[in-house]
Every structure is written in structure tokens, then in C-alpha cells.
């Protein structure tokens, strides 16, 4: 009975994720400013989420191993860490594809890219450590301790580091509901940094209810400069013109104006802002998170079973030698 239910569950995962793949292309509407390329977010965010779950599960089983010294707990800890590494790699690769579409390069050492790279290195070191120790008990013990330390760095590298960095182009503002980028308040004549672009507010011109800012935007490395003119409606308190950064699909938004102080709040507006307000996108997104999480637990069970079988066979071969 349990086996039948398990088989049914696995079949359901297969159908569920096939449905997500279809919905990703045919149900989710195109994203404003990104067209079809933005659909990759339906893959990117859930894989990153599952990586976080996997590393947490790995840490829990590592702690259980240190407490009870059962080899099965070590198998699950290793299987979860391997799955976490795989899903982090998937999140990185899908992020790189997105980066190529939006920024024009696969990799530009953005704080988010750098922190995820460090996380991959930390978990790669766990596998190197395991491979370097022959004595099984010592290997399990050391890797359980290391795994707990690695887990402590994970929330910092995934959630904190990219958000404390001022200059990131990772579209938190666009894709995470409720989150916001603070932007940059500049007085006329002052210089600041938005993402990796230097911006200088040259002037604020009022024409009726609409204020237009003249903003000089520099390319990274100050290779080229261009003046953009975002505008703001004082009566309705909303942005009017949102010109695109040169060579990017991100827009420069004028989010607030203080004419007395002669200053303005400038921000990067990512394409797809308000994405999850669309029901079809939101439900596909949630379905993808559920599907990938279920897939992780299935992978965890298969890999842990394989590790258990491998250990039992090695023990049997050793006993008969």
C-alpha cells in the first residue's frame, strides 16, 4: 500500500513538473520589457529556493549524525548537500542566461553572482574533504561538523550579502513581492551609483505638473556617457517617462522629487515589475516551487538509498575478504 502511494506520488511529480514546463511557456504572459526571455524566472527562483531547503536538510541530518552516530543520517546529509549543490548550480546557470539577456554578459561579478559562487565553493570543499578521508567514521564525523559550519554561511551568502551591497543589478525589486530597492536620492549636480552605473543629476525642469530630470549615465568603466530624461507626475505621484539604460533592458525611474531641496529619488526599474500581481504567473511560480521541492525529496530518498546500498555492499565485500 505504502509502495503504491509512493509510486503514485512520484508519477504525480512527473506530471506536475511537466505541467509547470508547459505553463511556463503557454500560460504565463510575456514580461514587460523582457519578452519570452523572462520566463526563465519560473525555473530560476524555485531552484534557488530548493537549494536553500536542501542545505538546511543536510545540516539537520549532520546534526542528527553527530548526536546518534547512525550512518544513515550521514547518507541523508550527503545526499541533501549534493542535491543542494546541483540546484544551486541550476539557479546559477539560469541566472547567467537571464544576465546575458538583460545585461549582455553571462557573468559580471555582481554581488549576487559572487556570493552564490562562494557558496558553491564552500560546498565543493565539503565533497573534497569527504574524498580525502578514507576512514569512514572519521570522514562522517568531520564532514558533519564541516556541513554545520557551511550551513551557517548559507543564509548570509544567499539572503544577506546580496542585499547589503549597494550596487547589485539582481532584480529583487522586480521579482520578490513586497521587496523594494531604495534607490538613490541626489541633489542637482551630485553623483551616485545605481547598480554598476554612475549617475549624475544635471537638472530638474518643471513643466506644468510634470518634472523632468536630466541624468547623465555612465557605462561601467566610464567608457561612454549619455543623458537620460526620466519624468515624474507631481499630481498623481507616479513616474511618466522611464528611459532605458544604454545597452540594458533596465529603466531609469524618477520615483520622487523635492523641488525645494532641488533633489530627486532615482532608481533602477527592472522589467517585469509587479510580475507576481498577475495570477497566472503567481500560480505557475508557486506550482514550480512545490514541484521542485517534491523533486528534491524524491532525489534525496533515491541518493540516500544508493549510498546505503553502496555501504552495505562494501561492508559485505570487506567481511568476506
Amino acid at each position: 500500500m505504502v509502495q503504491r502511494l509512493a509510486r503514485l506520488g512520484k508519477l504525480l511529480i512527473g506530471l506536475w513538473l511537466a505541467g509547470v514546463a508547459i505553463a511556463m511557456f503557454l500560460v504565463v504572459p510575456q514580461y514587460e520589457g523582457l519578452g519570452n526571455a523572462g520566463r526563465i524566472v519560473i525555473m530560476h527562483v524555485p531552484t534557488a529556493w530548493v537549494a536553500v531547503v536542501a542545505f538546511t536538510v543536510s545540516a539537520i541530518f549532520s546534526a542528527r549524525y553527530l548526536w546518534r552516530r547512525r550512518p544513515q543520517d550521514d547518507d541523508y546529509a550527503l545526499a541533501a548537500a549534493e542535491s543542494g549543490f546541483l540546484f544551486t548550480t541550476l539557479a546559477t546557470v539560469t541566472g547567467m542566461i537571464f544576465s546575458q539577456v538583460v545585461w549582455g554578459v553571462y557573468w559580471n561579478w555582481d554581488p549576487r553572482q559572487t556570493s552564490i559562487f562562494v557558496l558553491l565553493l564552500i560546498y565543493a570543499a565539503l565533497f573534497a574533504l569527504r574524498a580525502a578521508i578514507d576512514e569512514p567514521q572519521r570522514r562522517r564525523q568531520l564532514s558533519a561538523v564541516y556541513s554545520l559550519f557551511a550551513f551557517v554561511t548559507m543564509p548570509f551568502l544567499v539572503f544577506v550579502a546580496p542585499r547589503i551591497a549597494d550596487s547589485t543589478l539582481h532584480p529583487n525589486c522586480a521579482f520578490i513581492q513586497g521587496s523594494q530597492c531604495d534607490g538613490l536620492t541626489l541633489e542637482v549636480g551630485k553623483i551616485g551609483l545605481l547598480g554598476d552605473r554612475k549617475v549624475q543629476l544635471l537638472a530638474l525642469e518643471r513643466n506644468g505638473d510634470v518634472v523632468t530630470a536630466q541624468v547623465k549615465v555612465s557605462e561601467p568603466g566610464l567608457t561612454a556617457e549619455r543623458v537620460l530624461s526620466p519624468s515624474f507626475d507631481l499630481v498623481h505621484e507616479e513616474m511618466v517617462a522611464r528611459p532605458e539604460f544604454p545597452g540594458l533592458r533596465y529603466q531609469l525611474g524618477l520615483e520622487a522629487v523635492d523641488l525645494e531641496a532641488n533633489s530627486a529619488l532615482l532608481n533602477i526599474e527592472a522589467p517585469g515589475t509587479g510580475l507576481l500581481e498577475n495570477r497566472r504567473t503567481l500560480f505557475t511560480f508557486l506550482a514550480a516551487i512545490i514541484g521542485f521541492t517534491a523533486l528534491f525529496f524524491w532525489m534525496l530518498s533515491v541518493r540516500a538509498t544508493l549510498l546505503g546500498v553502496q555501504w552495505a555492499l562494501a561492508q559485505r565485500a570487506g567481511g568476506r575478504l
Binding site: K10, G14, L17, W298, V302, T305
Partner: peptide, 12 residues
């Protein structure tokens, strides 16, 4: 999916 299904069956 097919690979994982077969691997699961063989491991079990």
C-alpha cells in the same frame, strides 16, 4: 524523470 524512476527502482 525516466532516469530517476529507473534509478529509484534499481536502488530499491
Amino acid at each position: 524523470f525516466v532516469y530517476l524512476w529507473r534509478l529509484d527502482a534499481q536502488a530499491s
